[in-house]
Design a protein around this nucleic acid. Structure first.
Lengths: 201, 201, 201, 201
DNA sequence: CATGAATGAGACTTCATTCAT
DNA sequence: TATGAATGAAGTCTCATTCAT
């Protein structure tokens, strides 16, 4: 059995991470047991500890993996030659598409990390703020160019923008059925429209 | 021994609830122990079970007490003869003043209930939605009157408004020093201005 | 049921300590489980942790309790007007009588603490040495008085004396039947005779 | 590939045993993990199980290897034409030189086997007693020859002799710096002098 | 009302051992 | 021989909850 013969050789570490996403999403980080993750992944209990030193580290890993991708996406949007409104649209679209692609993962990140002021939020505060600051920088530049008005600070604008995106995701997370394709697409425009009308001159 | 006879008689139930707010805010609901609450309240921890049937019930009580006050405040704002913008201002002001008055309590409600999609959020979903719906009703009526444009659904508008308020509170919760008086006042106007520009014709 | 009616009201903490002695003696500290102690004591598992913060703390407590009694006994022997030989006899007698009274406890102290160079011995080294030093002081004074010869340092003499006592106890500990009354009494004399012949002029 | 063909071929079994000595000495048998031994030896830890069936077997092997050498040394001393005092000196010298050559190994044997009445001591009791008995035989013969007095049984004398040697080693084991060359040499004489004055007529 | 000793289920984590490669 | 991923039993410790006083 050569490596080339089994290109799909399972990476158990990945299997565990993916299972953890489903379990955290379903039961919550504090409420689930490590054995739930192992069961969901179809591996022995101890293997979880072979790859991760604790339950916390699994969540940390999930958050950091995804958040870095998001920071890269924001950077990319910012680097483009688009208008501020288009940049914000790209960011909202990226986050919403992330949710479309893996709603459980986004749920975990928002519910267990981004809003968990006591534990993980505290730990990853700096990382979380990086996103806010990148968005604020886009706004600041738009203000300097005269596209956005100056009455609202870039920090506040960033808060409003990201807060709305997260609130929309949260509403989908809470909904039993989740959101339909159409709703996802429409939301992108609505979010940007709502915020930018508040920001543009 | 009636309550009126001993005005200085401490209401131990209240003492426990207030202590729970501080402990939940500091350590988080899942991370704290019932004995932490008892210690903070200065009572034996058997007494906690004299007044509450479980740790959960304490959080439920705190949430429901406060949320009912907020629903009443929204109703009152809605019942006034003010403009839609003024109504939303009144609501934002009420929530921010609640935070000013007891930041720990608002932190607990937002972090442990409002955003906890797995446990308490699920339990209190209907109650939480009542607030969204009342706000949406204000928007809907403003649209019917022609003050707000119809491109954005009242539900989305409500989400955007409440989401921004909560995001602003969250940013204060995460900040080490919290927010100053001035910042609190300014935020009220900024929130309403940002959202209403997006909603008004 | 008044307090005077039940003078024998059980001190559960004591019950746990006594049970721990039997379990440690039978199975060894590392080999036994906390549940074995709880079972032996006839109490619930959690009560062990109500009184002690860890399995280690139980052993620490047992050792310190007993060792302090022994240090006091050595001091008392030293303070008497007896000859050096009589002082050493009193000490040997005390230790051997301790063994007679509670062989399990002495076994635990010797096997798990006094000779465990890696863990507990390391922790309680200072305390253990206090005993050696008190015995050495007796020897030193006997040398100064001219009763003992000076070729052997007090430190070495102390080692030899205490080492012989411990070795004798160890041999009883290892023996299936333990030692008879007569053997215990005879040992006191033999130990002192053997060591003092080596020390006296 | 024979052993003689590759003189530099490392005997991995030996490497593992030597590593185990260091690890047992440093952390203790119960406190160390098999992987610690493998790491110290620089091999994968599956290999440990290729050579030994369990962690216990490693300690058993170390003890038996060394103890057999010691029994042989005692036999040799006994077989010589020396005086009883010289025989005991030879034995003390052998044990102390063993410590000089490999203090970790002696520490492991004393702390983990010889004094561990519950586990390994119990297992190897017969083997341990062989040494005591050989020494007792030397004493008995000296008594028969009239060199040693008969008040003290050979068994007790053997206990006293071996106990003192072990106590001296133990004191070095506990000491931070260990013992200097000079101290090692001097101890041989002191031990024999102390014990033999107690035994000789 | 008030106390805090007592209970015991349950969680996390460790680690000796196996086994496929 | 050699590797280290995989297994899962077992142990420590926590803590919500009960209850006798």
């Amino acid at each position: 059995m050569t490596a080339s013969a089994t290109t799909a050789a399972v990476d158990k570490r990945r299997v565990i991470l993916d299972a953890a996403v489903r379990v955290f999403a379903r039961q919550g980080f504090h409420t689930c047991r490590v054995s739930d993750i192992a069961d969901e992944a179809g591996v022995a209990y101890g293997l979880v500890y072979h790859y991760f030193s604790s339950k916390e580290e699994i969540l940390d890993t999930l958050f950091l993996e995804r958040w870095d991708v998001m920071l890269a996406a924001i950077s990319e949007a910012d680097a483009s030659r688009s208008s501020p409104r288009e940049k914000l649209y790209a960011i909202a679209a990226f986050i919403i598409d992330s949710y479309r692609h893996d709603p459980d993962l986004m749920k975990v990140i928002i519910v267990e990390v981004t809003r968990a002021a006591n534990t993980f939020g505290r730990t990853h505060l700096a990382k979380i703020r990086e996103a806010y600051e990148q968005i604020a920088a886009i706004v600041a530049r738009a203000q300097a160019e005269g596209t956005f008005r100056r009455e609202i600070t870039p920090q506040f604008a960033s808060l409003a923008f990201y807060g709305l995106v997260e609130q929309v995701l949260t509403s989908w997370i809470f909904e039993a059925g989740g959101a339909g394709e159409e709703e996802l697409e429409r939301a992108k425009g609505l979010i940007v429209e709502t915020i930018c009308r508040g920001l543009e001159r």
